[in-house]
Design a protein around this nucleic acid. Structure first.
Lengths: 199, 199, 199, 199
DNA sequence: CATGAATGAGCTTTCATTCAT
DNA sequence: AATGAATGAAAGCTCATTCAT
C-alpha cells in the first residue's frame, strides 16, 4: 500500500483527532496503535514515528480536546448572562452534533487514558469551561441579575448537567421527553436563563 | 502464601465490590485479575474459581452497583417533591461519601467494562434513577407544584448535574465555592426545591 | 451433592475406564481431571484421592486397555488359522461395537497421553496382539497352510489394517462400500482366510 | 536475541511445517506456540504475527499435509494396477523416510488438533488417498484383473494397513521380520499385487 | 516518511495439585 | 472418602515498542 506522505504537523493533528474519536467511540481499551493506524491510514509502527510513544499521543489528544472546548468560550460579550448564553448555545450545539466525543468532557475516561501525568491537564481543560461559567454567574450576580441564595458552584453544575444530558444519544430517562433533543439550543437557553433569574 | 478460606458466596460479593472499586479508582485498564486478586487477597487464578469469567465478574459488579443505586430510591413517600427530596438527600450523601465510586453513575466506564453484553444492564440500572426523578417531577407538575414551561427531562438533567458535581473530590470550577461541599444535603435540597418551584 | 462412597478398588477401575473413554472421545486435550470427575460423579480433587497423580491414572487406563485387548486372544484353539480366525472375529466385533475406543489401538494417542514413562507399556500391550497374529501366521506357514513368499509381518499389517478400517464410523474411502460394515465378522474372516491361503 | 528476518510467506510455510513435525513428534499437547517458536527460532508472540490464531496455524499445517499426501497420487498412468503400484511405492518410501510424520495419516491426532472446524478438511485430505486406491481397485476389477469376491473397501484397508505398518520405527510385531523394512518398496508392491490378483 | 518483522511484558484462562474441613 | 478453596505453572493472545530496510 502506498501511503501518501504527509508533513508531520498535519499527521500529528490527524492522529490526535483520531485518538480522541477512538477514545470516545471505543473507550480506553479500544485506543490501540493498530486501531489508530487504521484510522489515519498508517501502520501501527508508523504512528509512532510522529509521537515518541502512546502517552504522547494521548497528551496531544487532550490538548486537541482542550482547543475544542475553548472554541466555545466567547470573549467579546460584555453582558455576563448574554456571554453565558452564547457559550451555552454553542456548547449545546456541539454536544448534540458529537455526543460521543463531547461525552469525554463529562467523563473520567480521558483521565484514565492520560495516566498519572496527564490528569492535571485534563482537569485544567475541562475545568476551564466550568470556571468560565462560574465567572459569568458571579458577574451576573454582582449586577443583581441573579439572586444570592443559590451558590455559584451549584449553577455551574446545573449547567454542566444540562449540557451533559444532551450527550446521551438516547436520553435514558423518560422516553416521552425525547423531543427535548429537538428544542433549539437558543430556546433551551431561554429556559435556563429564566431559571437562573427566577430563583 | 496461606490465604484464609472463605465460602464462595462471601468471596463473590467481596470480589464484585473490589471490581467496582478498582474500576472507579483505576479505570477499565486497571481492572485486571491480578489487581483484583490483590484487592481481596487471592491469586488471579483463585479469583476465577468464584467466577466463570472476567465478564462474569464485571456483570456481578454491575448488579452490585445497581443495588447501591436502588437503595436511594424511596418508595413509601406519597408527596412527589418530598419523595424526590428524600432521594436527593440520600444520593448526595452517598456521592460525597464515595465520590470516585459514584462517579461511575455519571460515566461511561461501566459500559466500557461491560462490553456488548452488559451495556443494557448498566443503562437500565443508571436509567432507573433518572426515571424515578422524572416520575416525581411529572407527578409534582400534575399537582401544580412545578410550572409547565421547563420540560421534565431538563429537570432530570439538572438534578443529575448537581449530584454528579459532588463526585469531584476537588470541585474543578471555582475554588472559593469549595464550601458548597460543606453544605448539608438537606440544605442543598432546600435550594433545589426552591429552584424547582420557582421556575 | 452426596456422592456414594465406593471402595477404592471399584473407583480405580471406574476412573481408568472413564479415562479411556475420554481419551477416545475427546483426545488428549479432553482428558482433564474435571472431566474425569464428571464422568464418574466425583469432584476433580476426589479423583486424585484414588490415584497419586494424573500420569498414574493414564497408566491404569493403559493397563485396562491392555486387558481389553488381551480378552480377544484365544488360547485354547490348536489350529493356528482357526485360532487367528477366532481372534479376528472377536476383535472385529469389538472394534465395530466401540469404534472410537478401539481406535486407540491403531493410534498414537495413548502414547502421547502416557508420556515418556508409559510409552513402552502401550507398545507392549498393542504389540501383543500383533505378536499373537504373527505367531499364528508362522505356525500356519510351517503347516503349509500359507505360502512362504509373503513375509509374516506383512500379513500382520494387513490384518491390523482390516481391523483398523472398521474403527471409522464413516468409512472415509468409498461410500458405496459402506455395507462392508454390515458384513458379519465371520464372513469377513472367510474372505481374509481365502486371501491368506490363496496368495 | 537478534533473529534473522524472513518474509512472511517463507515464515508461514516454515511454521506450518514445524507444526506438523511437532504434532507428529510430541502430540497435540506438545504443539504449543512457545515450542513452535523455538522450532523456527522466533518468540511465541512473533509466531502469531504470521498467523491470526493457533487454529490458523493448524489449518495451514493441515493443508501442508494435504499437499504432502497429494504428491503421491499419480495421474498419468492409464493402467489401474500400475497406477496403484506407483502410488504404493511412492507412499511407502515416504512413510519409511518420515515415519513419525506420516503416522499422522493413520491417526486421529490431526483431527484432535484441528478441532471442530478443521476435522472435515483432515478427513478430506486423508480420505483422498483412500478414494484413489478404491478407484484403482474398482477399475482393475472391471478389467478382470482382480476377482469380485473381496469388496473394494477391504482392499483399501489392507493397503492402508501395509503402509501404516511401515510408520512404526520399531515394527512392534515380530522382531525376526524387521528386515521387511529393508525390502524395497518395489518388491513390496510385487507381493501386494500378487495378493490382489491371486485372491 | 513508511513499513514489515520481531519482541517482552502483561493479560485471561485452564489445569493439575495441595490442603483443611 | 469426598469436597471446596486456593495456588503455581503454563498456555494463548494482545499490545506498545524497537529496528532494519
Amino acid at each position: 500500500m502506498v501511503t501518501p506522505r504527509l508533513p508531520t504537523a498535519q499527521r500529528r493533528r490527524q492522529i490526535a483527532d483520531a485518538a480522541l474519536r477512538l477514545l470516545a467511540d471505543a473507550g480506553v481499551a479500544g485506543l490501540t496503535l493498530v486501531e489508530l493506524g487504521r484510522a489515519v491510514g498508517l501502520s501501527d509502527a508508523s504512528v509512532l514515528r510522529h509521537f515518541k510513544d502512546k502517552p504522547a499521543i494521548v497528551e496531544a489528544a487532550i490538548e486537541r480536546f482542550g482547543e475544542l472546548l475553548a472554541e466555545d468560550l466567547p470573549t467579546d460579550i460584555a453582558d455576563p448572562l448574554r456571554r453565558l448564553g452564547a457559550f451555552f448555545v454553542r456548547r449545546l450545539a456541539k454536544v448534540r452534533a458529537h455526543p460521543e466525543l463531547m461525552a469525554l468532557a463529562y467523563d473520567r475516561r480521558l483521565r484514565d487514558a492520560a495516566g498519572e501525568a496527564g490528569t492535571a491537564r485534563v482537569d485544567a481543560h475541562i475545568g476551564r469551561s466550568a470556571r468560565f461559567v462560574g465567572a459569568c454567574i458571579d458577574e451576573a450576580r454582582e449586577q443583581g441579575a441573579i439572586g444570592a441564595d443559590v451558590p455559584t458552584q451549584m449553577w455551574v453544575w446545573i449547567i454542566a448537567g444540562l449540557l451533559r444530558g444532551a450527550s446521551f444519544a438516547v436520553p435514558h430517562g423518560l422516553g416521552q421527553d425525547a423531543d427535548l433533543m429537538l428544542m433549539s439550543p437558543e430556546r433551551c437557553w431561554e429556559l435556563v436563563e429564566r431559571i437562573l433569574r427566577g430563583a
